[in-house]
C-alpha cells in the first residue's frame, strides 16, 4: 500500500485548512488493466502505445453520433486513454463510470487517466457520469490541451456515496481556445468528493467557464478547488467560475477554494460561490403553495441534477442517467 498525492492547489494556502492537496492513503501498489467497452463511430480509430489506448479523430471529421465508453469496474483496475481530435474535427464522447455502483458493497479502486488534445478549431464535448457506492474509491485524472480556436466542453455528474477524486487540467494554449465545465453532484452518507479544476490561459482571447451545482447530505464531505490561471501574454482572456452548493444536513462538510492567479493586465476574471440553505423567499413561496420544507428541499436538490441532465443533448445518455437516478 502507498500514498497518492493529487489535486494540488496551484497556489498553496493556510495548511490548517487541509485544502492544499488530497492525500489518498492505502493505494494498492499494482493494478490490472481496466476493461471497457466502446462504441466507436465512423472514422475514429484506436491504437495502442505503451499501455495507452489512443483514439484518433481525423481532421475535419464531424462525428454525428457520440463515442461511448462503458468502463467496467468489477475489481481494482486502472487504464490510460488518449484522445486526439484533429484540426477542425468535432466529436462528443460519453464516459459512463456508473459500473462503479453495480457490484454490491465490494471495495475497489479505479484509476483512469485521460489525455485529450484538441487541435486547431477542434470541438470536443465530454460527458462523464460517475456513480459509486460506499467502499469505492475512484481517481479520475484528465488533462486537456486546446490549440488555436479549439473548444473543450465537459459535463460531469457525480452521484452516490463513494469517494471521488477528480483532477482536471485544461491548458488553453491557442488563440481563442475555450473551456467549459458544467458539473453537478449529489453526494450522501459518508461519500467524499474531491475536485480540482485548473484552467490555464496561455492563448490570447482564450476563455474558461466553470459552473458547479451540488447537493450534500448526511455526512458527505466535499472540496472544490477551482483555479483560473492567467499566464503572462494571454491578452484579452476571460475566465469565470461559479459554485452553488445546497447543504441538506447539519453534518455535512463543504470546502470551496476558488482561485484566480493573474500575471496579465488585460484580462477579466470572476468567481463566485453561494453555499448554504435555500433562500427564505423561495422557501416561503413554495411552503405557501402547500409543500413542506422537506419536500421543498428534496425538490430543489433533484432540480439541480435534472437541470444538468436536461442540458445533455444525447438522448441515449440522458435516458441512461434517468435510469440511474
Amino acid at each position: 500500500m502507498s500514498n497518492l498525492v493529487m489535486n494540488q492547489l496551484p497556489g498553496r494556502t493556510f495548511e490548517w485548512l487541509g485544502v492544499n492537496e488530497a492525500v489518498l492513503s492505502g493505494m494498492e501498489e499494482s493494478y490490472e488493466a481496466l476493461h471497457y467497452k466502446t462504441e466507436l463511430t465512423g472514422k475514429i480509430d484506436c491504437a495502442q502505445n505503451g499501455g495507452t489506448d489512443i483514439y484518433q479523430i481525423p481532421g475535419n471529421y464531424k462525428a454525428e453520433q457520440p463515442v461511448y465508453f462503458w468502463l467496467a469496474y468489477d475489481r481494482s483496475a486502472r487504464n490510460q486513454i488518449e484522445i486526439r481530435a484533429g484540426k477542425g474535427s468535432e466529436a462528443t464522447i460519453v464516459m459512463d463510470h456508473s459500473a462503479l455502483h453495480q457490484h454490491g458493497e465490494k471495495e475497489l479502486q479505479g484509476l483512469l487517466s485521460t489525455k485529450i488534445v484538441a487541435e486547431d478549431h477542434a470541438k470536443v464535448k465530454l460527458i462523464e457520469i460517475q456513480k459509486a457506492h460506499a467502499g469505492v474509491r475512484f481517481v479520475n485524472e484528465l488533462h486537456v490541451e486546446c490549440m488555436e480556436g479549439a473548444e473543450f466542453e465537459i459535463t460531469q455528474l457525480f452521484l452516490g456515496e463513494g469517494a471521488f477524486y477528480q483532477d482536471l487540467h485544461c491548458d488553453l494554449k491557442g488563440y481563442g481556445s475555450g473551456f467549459q465545465a458544467d458539473t453537478a453532484y449529489l453526494i450522501g452518507k459518508q461519500g467524499k468528493l474531491d475536485i480540482n479544476y485548473v484552467a490555464t490561459h496561455y492563448g490570447k482571447k482564450s476563455s474558461s467557464d466553470m459552473k458547479l451545482n451540488g447537493v450534500l447530505r448526511e455526512q458527505a464531505d466535499k472540496i472544490f478547488r477551482g483555479t483560473i490561471d492567467f499566464k503572462h501574454g494571454c491578452v484579452g482572456a476571460v475566465g469565470t467560475e461559479k459554485e452553488d452548493v445546497l447543504l441538506m444536513d447539519p453534518t455535512v462538510d463543504n470546502k470551496t477554494v476558488p482561485l484566480i492567479l493573474c500575471q496579465e493586465e488585460n484580462v477579466s476574471g470572476t468567481h463566485g460561490a453561494t453555499i448554504g440553505r435555500l433562500g427564505k423567499e423561495l422557501l416561503f413561496y413554495l411552503e405557501s403553495r402547500g409543500m413542506t420544507k422537506t419536500e421543498v428541499y428534496e425538490m430543489m436538490a433533484r432540480a439541480r441534477i435534472d437541470a444538468l441532465v436536461k442540458r445533455i443533448a444525447d438522448e441515449r445518455t440522458r435516458s441512461a442517467i434517468w435510469a440511474e437516478i
Binding site: 485548512l17 462538510d253 463543504n254 477554494v257 492567479l261 460561490a273
Partner: peptide
C-alpha cells in the same frame, strides 16, 4: 492572485 477558502460545516 486571489486565494480564498471556505470551510462550512
Amino acid at each position: 492572485d486571489t486565494i480564498p477558502a471556505m470551510d462550512i460545516k
